[in-house]
């Protein structure tokens, strides 16, 4: 089954004053369980494509299907529900909630999903240990380094075992050892649970590990 499918996707920012065409007609089909890297120079539309697939933004034209369901016209409450239940995000700027500790940040999505407190805590502690943050559970994001924050963000995105994980430059701020460890963790989840991973990246290490590479340039797929 197709996990994600986009048809003739166009996205124009700032349509009225200074139109910037971020995506100019992208067609892409991603099967369930793929481990895919979107590659291309900055400004090529990688982040835009990820945001559109995740329902964070709406396309100017074209259609997006997530697990066979068209999301282009969904109201924002249903998009939120879709993100909550099916999609995990790793953002370029980590985007952790500043007032919550690392542990609480990881627990937050499970809290929204209604996972019981004991279960929630146990899973959050286990995943933080797995990303190498044992002992830092009580720290707030600003008490963590960039790499540590990124690891919390990755932990948050996979802890509820979503069907699809969208990761925008997940290794950009990590040293190569930590980056490799995180990628192996995600790869393991991909192989064991069949979670679909879509990365945007510049990092050759990610590209080496990806099973499929899609190259973007100026808002179109070149390979």
């Amino acid at each position: 089954m197709e996990s994600v499918k986009v048809l003739a996707l166009r996205k124009v920012y700032n349509e009225k004053r200074m139109p910037v065409e971020a995506l100019q007609g992208v067609d892409l089909s991603i099967e369930k369980g793929e481990f895919l890297a979107l590659v291309g120079p900055s400004g090529s539309g990688k982040t835009t494509l990820l945001n559109l697939i995740g329902g964070l933004d709406r396309p100017t034209e074209g259609k997006i299907f997530v697990e066979g369901r068209e999301i282009t016209e969904l109201p924002s409450s249903e998009l939120a529900e879709l993100r909550l239940r099916r999609i995990g995000f790793v953002f370029q700027e980590y985007n952790l909630i500043p007032v919550l500790t690392a542990l609480e940040n990881v627990e937050y999505v499970m809290l929204l999903q209604g996972v019981k407190e004991m279960d929630r805590r146990e899973r959050a502690l286990a995943i933080l240990k797995e990303v190498g943050l044992e002992g830092m559970e009580k720290r707030k994001p600003r008490e963590l380094s960039g790499g540590q924050q990124q690891r919390v963000a990755v932990a948050r995105s996979i802890v509820s075992e979503p069907a699809i994980v969208l990761a925008d430059e997940p290794t950009a701020n990590l040293d190569s050892n930590t980056g490799a460890a995180l990628l192996d963790l995600m790869r393991g989840l991909n192989e064991k649970k069949g979670v679909t991973f879509i990365f945007s990246t510049h990092d050759s290490m990610v590209m080496e590990r990806a099973r499929r590479i899609v190259r973007l340039k100026d808002g179109t797929i070149v390979a």
């Binding site: 964070l56 909630i97 007032v99």
Partner: peptide, 15 residues
Amino acid sequence: RELGIMMALGTGPSR
């Protein structure tokens, strides 16, 4: 920004 993150993670408008 915080509210944006919460919404991106799936917090619905009614919540």
